[in-house]
Structure formats: C-alpha cells, structure tokens
C-alpha cells in the first residue's frame, strides 16, 4: 500500500460526560474503503466529524499526509469531500442550483451537472424546488456530487439513508470503482454492503473502550 493519506493515533473524544472512544488508531491509504460500525450512539458520526475537521474538541493526533491536520487544513480540505447525515442542500433551491453552488470551487459546466443528476435519476426534477422532493430524492442531490468529485478522500456519513435498493446498488458500484481507481473512502452505514475489500472499524461504545 502506498503512503497513508489520513493517519489517526491515540484519538479520544467525550460527549457530555460520556467517553465515546479512547486510544483509537486508524490509517487510510489511497484505495482503502473503511467502514465504521457500531450501535447508535457509539460515536460514529462524531468520529467522522473529527476526521473531516468539523468537530474540534478531541484528544489525540490526526495527520494528513504526515502533517498535523490542523496545520495543513486548507490542503486537507481541497482533497476532502464530506457528506453528512443531513443532506446539505437548500430546500428553496432546485437540485441544479444546489449542485451548482456546491461545486462552485471546481470549474464544472451545466452539462456535467445535468449528467450527474441523470446518474442519480433526478434529471426530470432538475428544476423543481428541493422542498417538493422526497427525503430520498434530496439525499440523491447530495450524492450527485460524488459523480463530479475528484477529491482524494471521501467521508460519507450514513450515505445510504432513505435511498432505494437500486440506488444503493448504483452507489456500491460507484464506491467500488472509486476505491479501485485509488480513492480513499470512509463511511458509516447500517445497510449490509456488498463490497469486497472493506476494512471495518467497530466502535463499541464507551465502557468496553475504557476497559481495553
């Protein structure tokens, strides 16, 4: 395996009075698909938010390409795509407008945006306001970004929520192709994943972690 992109050691985080995890270590190299598992409340979302730099209250060492992530933050963010469990789209905009503002950093033409919306099956709704769409369709707007993304690292929190079976299958094949092409992916999901070569990290909740 090549040099790790993201390296974590001795990570600990508290929420409220509860220790979510302690002394957690992981390393993500290009081409890795890492799945974070655990019961509700085990700290999956918090871990993913720490890794993406959204949650800043933790102990331990998070490194991007060997450098502390806090120091190389803007380099890290250029190579990161994070999709949270909230879709991150504005309800009073159409899927097309949402997508356009989300990829504003990259130079993407309207045909590419339409193509991406077509991939997630939303082309007929490209100009309908998002608050008229279903939860699954809103989620698909966010997922359309994956088809446009050339970021080296994807962090996907509950990406499959509210997505139908065909959508999940399409997404699985996208993730597999992505990992083969050398992209790194960290994700949480309660769906069974039909993917080979998945590394799994299990968060058990505080008590066991404290004992270990």
């Amino acid at each position: 395996m090549s040099h790790p992109l993201l390296q974590v050691s001795g990570l600990a985080c508290e929420r409220g009075d509860r220790l979510l995890f302690a002394d957690l270590s992981l390393s993500v190299a290009p081409g890795t698909l890492l799945r974070v598992e655990g019961p509700n409340g085990a700290g999956k979302t918090t871990l993913l938010r720490i890794l993406s730099g959204l949650h800043d209250f933790y102990d331990g060492d998070v490194r991007w390409c060997g450098e502390p992530v806090r120091r190389v933050r803007d380099h890290f963010l250029r190579n990161l795509l994070y999709l949270g469990h909230r879709p991150g789209i504005k309800p009073r905009l159409t899927p097309m407008e949402n997508l356009r503002s989300l990829v504003s950093g990259a130079n993407v033409g309207d045909e590419r945006l339409e193509w991406a919306l077509d991939e997630v099956g939303l082309l007929p709704f490209a100009h309908t306001l998002c608050d008229r769409l279903s939860a699954g369709q809103q989620r698909r707007v966010a997922l359309a970004r994956l088809y446009l993304s050339d970021h080296a690292l994807w962090i996907l929190d509950e990406a499959f929520t509210a997505i139908d079976r065909d959508g999940v299958a399409a997404l699985e094949s996208l993730l597999a192709a992505r990992a083969r092409a050398g992209g790194a992916i960290i994700l949480t999901t309660h769906h069974p994943l039909a993917l080979a070569d998945v590394t799994t990290l299990t968060l058990t909740g505080a008590e066991q972690e404290l004992a270990s």
Binding site: R100, L146, Y147
Partner: peptide, 25 residues
Amino acid sequence: TAMAPRPRFIAADTPLPLGRAMVAI
C-alpha cells in the same frame, strides 16, 4: 461510472477560486 472523474491529489499550492466561491454563496 467510467465517466466519473478519477481521484486526483491536489497540491497545496494550486490556486483557489476565491471570487467565484464568494459569488456562488
């Protein structure tokens, strides 16, 4: 999926489109 862009590692010194991002928001 073949048409999806391949992952690309972006160097730290690539210029960022600042104005475009502000206008977009």
